[in-house]
Design a protein around this nucleic acid. Structure first.
Lengths: 187, 187
DNA sequence: ATAAGCTTTTGATCTAGATCAAATATTAAT
DNA sequence: ATTAATATTTGATCTAGATCAAAAGCTTAT
């Protein structure tokens, strides 16, 4: 999906606003396993993925690397609280494949908000989408079994399951690699 | 906490805006165990709690009543996706004690947004707070043990633990009542 | 092509927390 | 006050998923 269709599907905007947004997002490429946003830093940029796969992750108290979430084509990639709130990020963002993205800086984003007030609505609408995903995730983790969580991911994001590594998927689901491997072997 | 201090702590606003917000929130009382927002309906109202305790809950596939989250004095109570997005709520809101609240209707909320554009920022900032809480919750559920989750709730919201029932707290933590009872008995 | 380094699978065991069931406490209703 | 209804505790099992350990498959770099 293109950035323009992504924005329009969130909220239809005047042509001039659309063009301003388009040109505020500049192309960037990343190779596999680059850190786009490191833990502890304020996110100065937000990304829209045109091609590739990335994840947000953190290290838990015992130092284990835990995937918080995956992002792929047509998704807006950002640690929302850090970018929108300009707070230090508690997570890292890492590319898992060679990626083609578009990025916007926070400065340019603020400029858009000032110049085209209707973008403020894109912001709230965007935040709402992140919130919807987060609440889904909570319900999933609260009471589904490992198998059910896997099936759900498979149903909603089959491409992630095909492209991400076993270990990353397992920690995303809140289970160990061994358990995930056995779930897969079973069917 | 008063509504005015709540708003000001989120974002300082012009006096006139503050006063408009104040008067848009009208007082309401609820007695124990009333349903303020039922599942399936679009939230037409958002509440600010001055006194009392409430929860958001849903029924899982096997019909079990699961507490999604608790709200008490000084908190804004709403199924954010439903109120801000005007979508049908997937959860119920229920009072757990006799409550004194202030409520605003969506119509009045929209009016505020139009008349005082700076309230749009209160909205995004509010959404951001909901998002922050949700991401915390995900991390908690992803890899902490029952005991750790309990300790964390106790540390962050001791008053909830003292006031809510065992069953409600247990489902909130993603465990059974029996397990929670044993965790408590242990210390 | 081969070694070195990762990633995934498989096996054996262990344990946190679930489930089932019954006994106490607590609260509400007549 | 007494009964009925609801919430909590306690006990005895069971099981999903963790942990530990080693083998087998893949990648990547020389």
């Amino acid at each position: 999906m293109q950035l323009s269709s992504y924005i329009n599907q969130i909220l239809p905007l005047a042509d001039i606003t659309n063009r301003a947004i388009e040109s505020a997002f500049v192309p960037v490429k990343f190779s596999k396993t680059q850190i786009l946003i490191p833990e502890g830093k304020i996110s100065k940029e937000m990304f829209f993925i045109e091609k590739g796969l990335a994840r947000i992750y953190y290290y838990n108290e015992s130092g284990k690397d835990i995937t918080y979430s995956f992002f792929t084509e047509g998704m807006m990639l950002t640690v929302a609280e850090s970018f929108f709130g300009q707070l230090p990020s508690r997570y890292n963002i890492e590319s898992l494949e060679d990626c083609e993205m578009r990025k916007i800086t926070y400065t340019d984003f603020e400029m858009l908000l000032k110049t085209y007030p209707e973008t403020e609505k894109v912001k709230s609408q965007g935040l709402l989408e992140f919130l919807l995903k987060a609440t889904d995730r909570i319900v999933t983790l609260q009471f589904l079994s490992a198998q059910e969580r896997y099936d759900l991911l498979m149903k909603n994001y089959p491409s992630i399951i095909l492209r991400a590594s076993l270990g990353h998927i397992a920690s995303y689901l809140g289970i160990t690699q061994e358990t995930l491997s056995r779930i897969r072997a079973k069917k």
